[in-house]
Design a binder for these strands. Structure first.
Length: 168
DNA sequence: CCCTGATTCGC
DNA sequence: GCGAATCAGG
C-alpha cells in the first residue's frame, strides 16, 4: 500500500493528535510503525506537542569518580540519589529492641530494611534491627518476607518490602 | 520484555 | 521516496 493523499492526511491528523507511530500504523493498516515514522520524518513533522515530559535537557550527570579500590569482598552497592545526597549516616546504630526506629537516612548496611508503616507518611520507618549475615531483613522479617503465598498478595507487607528493595 | 521515536541506508 | 534494521531510551 502506498501513501495516497487520504492516507497521508490521516497520518498527519493522527500524528498531530498525539498517537504513537505504532498506533497509527495499526489504524492505517498495511504499514509498519517504521513506515509511519519514516513518512513522518519525510513530511517534516517529527516534532510534536509534548503532552507530558517537561522537555528535558539531554544531559547526563557525569559518573562520580571511582572512590578507590575498596575491600575486594565488600558488597557492591550502588548509591541511590537519596542515599548519595544524605549526610553521611553517622555511626550505625542498630535497634535491637524496638523495630521501626530506622529512617532512610539512618538505615545502615546491616540493618533490617523491613518497612514499617505507610511510606507516604512522615512516620514511615524501617525496622532497623540487625540483619543476618546476608539477607536485607532481620530474622523475624526474613520469615515474613520469604513466604511465597503471602509474598504474592498485592499490598502485603512482603510485597511492599520487595517493591522498596531497590531504593534501599 | 514491552514500548517509544530517531537514524541509517539499500532498495 | 520508501521502510527494515538498528539505535537509544523509558
Amino acid at each position: 500500500m502506498g501513501w495516497t493523499d487520504e492516507r497521508v492526511e490521516l497520518l498527519k491528523k493522527l500524528w498531530q493528535d498525539g498517537l504513537s507511530a505504532s498506533q497509527i500504523a495499526k489504524q492505517l493498516g498495511g504499514v509498519t510503525r517504521n513506515a509511519v515514522i519514516g513518512k513522518v520524518h519525510r513530511l517534516g513533522l517529527s516534532g510534536r506537542a509534548a503532552p507530558s515530559k517537561p522537555a528535558r535537557t539531554v544531559f547526563k550527570a557525569p559518573r562520580p569518580a571511582r572512590p578507590a579500590p575498596a575491600a575486594p569482598s565488600a558488597p557492591r552497592r550502588i548509591a541511590e540519589p537519596v542515599a548519595a545526597m544524605a549526610p553521611t549516616p553517622s555511626p550505625v546504630r542498630f535497634v535491637d529492641e524496638e523495630p521501626g526506629m530506622a529512617t532512610v537516612l539512618t538505615l545502615g548496611a546491616h540493618m533490617c530494611k523491613w518497612p514499617i508503616g505507610d511510606p507516604a507518611l512522615e512516620s514511615f520507618t524501617f525496622c532497623g534491627r540487625r540483619t543476618g549475615h546476608e539477607g536485607p531483613y532481620c530474622m523475624e522479617h526474613s520469615q515474613v518476607a520469604y513466604q511465597p503465598a503471602q509474598a504474592k498478595k498485592k499490598g502485603s507487607p512482603a510485597e511492599l518490602a520487595r517493591s522498596l528493595r531497590r531504593y534501599i
